[in-house]
Nucleic acid binder design. Structure first.
Lengths: 176, 176
DNA sequence: TCTGGATATGCAATTATTTGCATATAAAAA
DNA sequence: TTTTTATATGCAAATAATTGCATATCCAGA
């Protein structure tokens, strides 16, 4: 599973509490891997009981202890091993396409309305990605360096969303 | 869940046995919804026990009975209801991007090799899609009509794969 | 001061998917 | 004639993901 290894990747860079990791996950990997907070907390528990990460308790006044997770050697090894073995090609399961395929059972206005909703979401995503890209491109060459690979994942998002929106135009043309 | 409704969509057009449906599923919906034969057989069972599909047994010599499934009114209603309510935007969970994000932990040749494997798969997919597109485009206008919506789902596949391959060029440029 | 939202954490049940196994026939290829 | 490939089905266990619920704090604004 990749979620485990995505979390290990984050911990490889820096330790953190569940919530820290959740936020870092959403901000950095969330564009190409969706995971709920429940999933992340429960994976942290599993990773810990498998010895791939350590956990230190930081007492807090009033609040319950803060659990800070950090990488172990076993975790590092597991991550490297995962990286060295091929992953499966992204599996697509797109409910909207199922619906479009069955679109003859629905009237065009309803299809159009739903297309418009999806389009808005994709446009918003693209906007977010383009903003992030501008931030990256504004950096000096040396400052870019550590973000080169993340930037490539961002490019995937940009090209993917642009392609989706191009396609949406074709669908709109048909529905009009 | 969309798998249920994808199967109902197939049955809306024509009845069939589990294996019939499996093949039709792979040929028509398989490009945007991946499901194993086990999943399809088990969903048929559930759909049947929920009364959304009927099942008639066709005795066969030597072989076990052929179970032929067909739509019920309840199934049709459930499909329409599903179609009328919005579906969620396609969720992306792309393990290769997780790996690329963590690529600094791996040497470039290994990343390049894996990229090449994925590229080959995407190229093959695109090839398949383009062949199907040629077949569609060769039809007369009247014969095209019933495949207009499926064709749009095919276009999604084409534009999606092209975008992936464009992106792969950027990644290759970086890795070289 | 009350209220709502962000912060911060998790359990439990259900649903969906994957993986491994299992069986049996028929046709085609070696 | 043996082996492989396609046809044709499915169960069971494990893993992954979703959904619903639950708790408790802190801070800002009405």
């Amino acid at each position: 599973m990749s979620l485990k290894h995505a979390i290990l990747t984050l911990l490889e860079t820096e330790e953190g509490s569940g919530y820290d990791l959740l936020k870092r996950f959403k901000a950095r990997l969330g564009f190409f891997w969706n995971a709920s907070h429940q999933q992340i907390y429960s994976q942290l528990k599993t990773l810990h009981s498998d010895g791939l990460i350590d956990c230190t308790l930081e007492p807090q006044k009033g609040k319950p202890d803060r659990k800070v997770y950090q990488m172990t050697q076993a975790g590092h090894d597991a991550l490297i091993e995962w990286l060295e073995n091929p992953v499966k090609v992204d599996k697509v399961n797109d409910a909207f396409l199922v619906k479009l395929y069955a679109g003859h059972l629905l009237d065009k206005p309803k299809l159009k309305a739903e297309l418009a909703e999806h389009k808005e979401i994709h446009q918003r995503m693209l906007g977010t990605f383009l903003t992030l890209e501008q931030q990256y491109l504004a950096l000096s060459e040396t400052k870019k360096r550590p973000f080169e690979l993340p930037y490539l994942t961002l490019r995937r998002g940009i090209l993917g969303e642009q392609a989706w929106l191009e396609w949406a135009k074709e669908v709109e043309a048909f529905l009009n």
